[in-house]
């Protein structure tokens, strides 16, 4: 299955089931050096124009919240070309559906020598929904190791916290700071803990962030050609019978900041999200939900 073409753009390259499972388990996907330099150069100029005109009537192509994402930054915008790159458009369609809408965007500039970083946070407010937004991060130029790339903590996206309430955490084992080539794109689950980092490097760091909301259920929106092949049995249990080549093993991905108790709750949260995404209410990893559901029929406190 492939996505439908948007206007005269090439068809979106939808995510695979394994990529979806990676996103559910870790809360992000990364696409290094995805965009050509010719587009990056133009897009960087557009981002600086947006910065210079922010909040004014002069801002070109200023979107409205709720606007269909496919109408953002129409041709000949280079920023629009980034968003409609088949890989970016395919990831968007896979994660938040073909009818996703614009929430907001922002251009983040971290000047060279700016040693003030943000504290760890997740965006917006505490969000108890199973459905999720995505945030697209686009880096038009190379970001060096000391260049102020976005910091984030893998697999924190399903924890219920509010904004900078996690600002006390300076370092968690396994934390990341993005560094990579020009034209790289990251896509985050809205709940992923992240922060803008200091930039002791020699180049101003420019980054574009776009938040998108789904408008319809996020069920089986990706390329499901491999779904039957990679799906694990509902009985896949690491302490019984399991298949290490199937999706359950992807959903068990453990981060260095997790203790055993944390890890088990994360597996349960991922299982619930995977049930929703695949419309399979019986799916389970390691029998955690099944045993409770079976026994609740026999009596609960």
């Amino acid at each position: 299955m492939t996505g439908s073409a948007i206007g005269d753009e090439p068809a979106p390259l939808l995510l695979t089931t394994r990529q979806m499972a990676e996103f559910v388990a870790r809360g992000f996907l990364e696409f290094p050096a995805l965009i050509d330099d010719s587009i990056n150069t133009q897009a960087e100029a557009e981002l600086r124009t947006i910065l210079d005109t922010w909040g004014s009537e002069d801002r070109p192509n200023a979107p409205d919240s709720g606007q269909p994402w496919t109408s953002l930054y129409p041709q000949p915008s280079a920023l629009g070309a980034v968003l409609r790159h088949p890989t970016v458009a395919g990831a968007i369609q896979s994660l938040v559906g073909p009818d996703a809408v614009f929430d907001h965007d922002f251009v983040h500039l971290r000047p060279s020598g700016d040693l003030n970083g943000q504290r760890l946070h997740c965006d917006a407010i505490i969000d108890p929904n199973l459905s999720f937004d995505i945030q697209v991060f686009y880096f038009p130029h190379q970001v060096a190791d000391d260049g102020g790339g976005t910091g984030f903590v893998p697999a924190t996206h399903l924890r219920l916290i509010h904004e900078t309430d996690v600002g006390r955490y300076r370092h968690l084992k396994g934390e990341r700071q993005w560094a990579g080539p020009a034209g790289s794109v990251l896509i985050f689950h809205h709940g992923l803990w992240h922060r803008g980092m200091p930039n002791p490097g020699s180049r101003d760091r420019l980054m574009y962030k776009l938040r998108l909301n789904p408008s319809s259920p996020q069920v089986l929106q990706w390329n499901t050609d491999d779904l039957a092949e990679v799906s694990s049995a509902n009985t896949d249990h690491i302490f019984a019978r399991f298949d290490p080549t199937k999706i359950a093993m992807s959903l068990r991905h453990r981060e260095p900041w997790m203790g055993e108790a944390d890890f088990r709750l994360e597996v349960v949260a991922r299982t619930r999200l995977w049930r929703h995404l695949t419309n399979n209410p019986k799916f389970d990893v390691d029998w955690y939900l099944t045993r409770l559901e079976r026994r609740s029929e026999l009596g609960h406190r």
Partner: peptide
């Protein structure tokens, strides 16, 4: 601040934050 993998003080450290009244810019 130390965050442990479980409730034991002997547990593995999974997170940490250091603040220094003698050097406010300090970080580990």
């Amino acid at each position: 601040f130390l965050w442990m993998e479980d409730s034991s003080l002997e547990g593995r450290i999974v997170g940490w934050s250091f603040f220094d009244g003698a050097d406010p810019s300090a970080d580990w």
